[in-house]
Design a protein around this nucleic acid. Structure first.
Length: 434
DNA sequence: TCTGGGGTCCTAGGACCC
DNA sequence: TCTGGGGTCCTAGGACCC
C-alpha cells in the first residue's frame, strides 16, 4: 500500500534582517535597506527595493557606499541580538499551527511545519492565515510553500516569493502532476535546495537545465555520477519524502568562534586579546550544550585582499591531555597553539578558535592523572555558571578570563558604525511613543 | 583604508591490522 | 618472471546550507 503523501510547509521570512530593522523603523517603509556583515564588511541582506536597484549579495560596503548615498540606500550594521529575539517570536507564532513535534526550526528565519496529521485543513487557506498572523503579531512579512517533501516545500516557497500571482502562498500538493511539471519547467536547476554552483554546472553540461529535468532523471544514474546526496534530492523532487524532521537540534560536533579585527594586529600579545574573547564565547556555547572538548584549534590569517602584503594563514589543532569545558583551561591550550603558529612580521586581520572532539559532559570522568581535586572542580563549575549568567545579562564579553573581560575600544574590536538599538532586549533602548 | 561567520555531510585515500 | 586482500579508522578536501 502506498503511504499518504506528506504535507510539509516551509515558512520563510522575506529579507529577514532588513525586515527586522524595518519593524522598528516604520518611517523607512519605502526606503531601500541593506544590512552589513560583521565589521561592516559586506552586504548580507537586501530588501526588495535594493534588489531592484541591482545590488548583489556579498558586495563589499566600501565599494557600494557612493552608489548607496546617491540612491538613498540606508545601511545597518548587523544586530544579531535583535534578529534572534524577533526570530523566537516568529517561531512561537508558527507553533500555534502544529504540535511541537511537527515543527522544525531550520534556521533563524525559516521553519518547516508538518501538516500531514491535519488532512482536513486546506493548505492555501492555512498558508494565508499564517502569513497574516505573523505579519500582525511580529511585523515580519513571510511567504509559505507546501509540498510532499522538504525539498518540494522549499521549491514551493521559492515560487511563492518570486511569482506574484501566488500571493505569497504556493501549495504544490494541490496541483496535478502536469501542473507541477509546468511549474518546475520554469525554474532553473540551480534553485533546488541541495544543488549548489558546482553541481548545477555539472548537471547543465549534461542537459539538465530545469527542476523538471532533474526530477525526470533516473535516481540510480544520478547516484553513480553525483553521490547519494543528489540522488536523495531527485527522490524528494518526485514527492518521495527522504529528509526527516529534526526535532531537538543535535548537539554541535564542533564549535567555532572567529572574527576579523577592526584593524591589523602583529604580536602574540596583541592577538592574545581577541583569542581570549573568542575562546570565552566558544566555551560558553560548549557549556550551553553541556559538552566538553578534547581538541582545540587556532588559526590566524593575513589579508588576502592585499596581494602586496606577505601572506600567512597557519592553522593548528592540539589534543588536550583531558576533556574540558573550562574557559581558563581551554584558553591556556589555545595560547600554546597561538605561540606555536605565530610568526612576527605579518599583518594579521583575523583570528579564530575551534573546539573539536566534543562529547557529552555526563561522560566526563576525571582522568587518572587529573591534578584537580573534585571539590576544586565543583568551584570551577560554579565560576563558569556565574560567567555565563553575567554575559547573558550584561552582554557578551562583559565578564571573562584575564583581559578579555575589559570592554574597550581597541584596534581589534568590530566596527559597527550603523548599529540599531536593542529595541527588544534592553530596557533603556525600548522604543518610546510620544 | 575598507572584502562575514558560522555549520553539516560525503568521499577518497592513506595508515594500519590480520 | 611472479609482490594478497579485506576491513577499519582517520584525515583532508570538497560540496552544500543559512
Amino acid at each position: 500500500m502506498k503511504p499518504e503523501p506528506r504535507r510539509i510547509a516551509l515558512v520563510d521570512a522575506n529579507s529577514f534582517y532588513c525586515s527586522c530593522e524595518r519593524v522598528f523603523r516604520p518611517d523607512l517603509e519605502h526606503t531601500p535597506l541593506v544590512v552589513l556583515s560583521n565589521n561592516d564588511g559586506c552586504v548580507v541582506a537586501r530588501d526588495a527595493l535594493v534588489k531592484r536597484l541591482g545590488v548583489q549579495m556579498g558586495v563589499p560596503w566600501f565599494q557600494l557606499k557612493e552608489q548607496a548615498e546617491r540612491q538613498g540606500i540606508v545601511c545597518f550594521s548587523s544586530n544579531y541580538t535583535l534578529y534572534g529575539d524577533l526570530s523566537r517570536r516568529f517561531m512561537s507564532v508558527l507553533g500555534h499551527y502544529v504540535p511541537a513535534e511537527d515543527q522544525e526550526v531550520y534556521s533563524i528565519d525559516e521553519s518547516f511545519l508538518d501538516f500531514t496529521h491535519q488532512p482536513q485543513l486546506d493548505l492555501t487557506t492555512t498558508g494565508q492565515a499564517i502569513k497574516e498572523r505573523v505579519r500582525r503579531w511580529t511585523g515580519l512579512p513571510v511567504c509559505v510553500g507546501f509540498g510532499a517533501s522538504k525539498t518540494l516545500a522549499k521549491l514551493a516557497n521559492h515560487v511563492a516569493k518570486k511569482q506574484a500571482p501566488w500571493g505569497g502562498v504556493c501549495d504544490l500538493t494541490a496541483l496535478t502532476e502536469a501542473e507541477r511539471r509546468g511549474v518546475m519547467k520554469g525554474i532553473e536547476v540551480r534553485e533546488v535546495w541541495g544543488v549548489g554552483r558546482q553541481i548545477a554546472k555539472q548537471l547543465m553540461l549534461r542537459g539538465v537545465n530545469t527542476v523538471a529535468d532533474l526530477a525526470a532523471c533516473d535516481p540510480n544514474r544520478i547516484r553513480e555520477r553525483f553521490g547519494v546526496v543528489v540522488e536523495r534530492t531527485v527522490n524528494e523532487l518526485r514527492g518521495i519524502s527522504c529528509i526527516d524532521f529534526e526535532m531537538a537540534p543535535p548537539a554541535k560536533q564542533q564549535i567555532i568562534a572567529s572574527r576579523s579585527f577592526g584593524g591589523p594586529l602583529y604580536t602574540i600579545a596583541d592577538l592574545a586579546e581577541p583569542l581570549r574573547l573568542h575562546m570565552g564565547r566558544a566555551a560558553e556555547k560548549l557549556r550551553h550544550q553541556q559538552s566538553t572538548a578534547g581538541v582545540v584549534g587556532v588559526w590566524i590569517q593575513t589579508n588576502q585582499f592585499r596581494p602586496q602584503d606577505p601572506q600567512y594563514w597557519p592553522t593548528r589543532t592540539i589534543k588536550m591531555t583531558e576533556h574540558s569545558d573550562d574557559t581558563a583551561m581551554l584558553t591556556a591550550w589555545a595560547m600554546s597553539v597561538l605561540r606555536s603558529i605565530h610568526r612576527p612580521g605579518y599583518r594579521y586581520i583575523k583570528l579564530g578558535v575551534m573546539l573539536m572532539d566534543l562529547r557529552p559532559r555526563a561522560l566526563h570522568q576525571g582522568s587518572l592523572f587529573d591534578a584537580t581535586p573534585p571539590e576544586l572542580d565543583a568551584r570551577r563549575e560554579k565560576l563558569m555558571g556565574v560567567l555565563d549568567k553575567a554575559n547573558g545579562k550584561w552582554g557578551r564579553g562583559s565578564m571573562g578570563i584575564g583581559s578579555a573581560g575589559v570592554k574597550a575600544d581597541r584596534a581589534w574590536t568590530m566596527q559597527r558604525g550603523n548599529l540599531s538599538p536593542c529595541y527588544t532586549t534592553r530596557w533603556n533602548e525600548l522604543r518610546t511613543v510620544s
